[in-house]
């Protein structure tokens, strides 16, 4: 009889817990989904030129967001997210590219765990008073006709070059590599199929 009490009491507690959780899930799940989409759209808006709507296409495990202008069928650019190893852990980026995949329109770091004060400058660099986001802004209008060149302590002079962050060369190179790999992958997917989009 003793074990019956144990079963009943644990069962009762679990039932109360399960009921509470399912009620609360009904309440919050739509809001959490809205937050996720909002964050995604913020990321897309930051890397693509001004667009009115976007279409989602999933090819080979990568989700591509094609941005379109108002009343126009021609896309203004394509955005996608990609992730790979940085200095200490995973770096995730949202990358925007022109529709012909030759020029970057913007890069945004979604998540990273790089060294605070050094590697975190790939997101924001408080020590640069003119442009806190100078590192990711370098990728705007970066031309992808050849491999991205990462320069140390030198201002870029050609359109395929970016400058590395002092003290965070590995983080800087990791971002550049993610961009070139992501674009190479996108080219494989989209350039072979001229009819899409």
């Amino acid at each position: 009889m003793k074990s019956l009490g144990i079963v009943l009491s644990l069962g009762l507690i679990s039932m109360i817990a399960g009921g509470l959780l399912s009620l609360w899930d009904k309440q919050t799940a739509p809001l959490i989904e809205i937050n996720r989409i909002k964050a995604l759209e913020r990321g897309i808006a930051q890397v693509l030129p001004a667009h009115d709507r976007y279409e989602t296409k999933i090819v080979k495990d990568v989700t591509y967001y094609w941005g379109y202008d108002k009343d126009q069928t021609e896309p203004v650019g394509v955005a996608f997210s990609t992730a790979g190893p940085g200095f200490q852990g995973k770096v995730a980026l949202m990358i925007g590219v022109k529709p012909d995949l030759t020029e970057v329109t913007g890069v945004q770091v979604i998540s990273q765990i790089e060294t605070p004060g050094l590697g975190t400058k790939i997101v924001v660099d408080p020590s640069n008073k003119e442009d806190k986001y100078w590192f990711s802004n370098q990728f705007k209008a970066l031309v992808l006709d050849r491999a991205i060149e990462v320069l140390k302590n030198k201002k870029p002079s050609e359109p395929h070059q970016i400058q590395a962050i002092t003290g965070a060369t590995i983080s800087s190179k990791a971002v550049a590599k993610l961009v070139s790999n992501g674009v190479a992958h996108a080219r494989q997917v989209w350039l072979d199929q001229p009819e899409v989009p």
């Binding site: 507690i13 817990a17 609360w24 309440q27």
Partner: peptide, 26 residues
Amino acid sequence: PKQVRIAGYIVIIASFVTLADRFLAA
């Protein structure tokens, strides 16, 4: 019952933690 009190507490605590987690996420 005394024998399963810790299991009971953990179920209760875990439920409220999940509520709080979902609340913040939403």
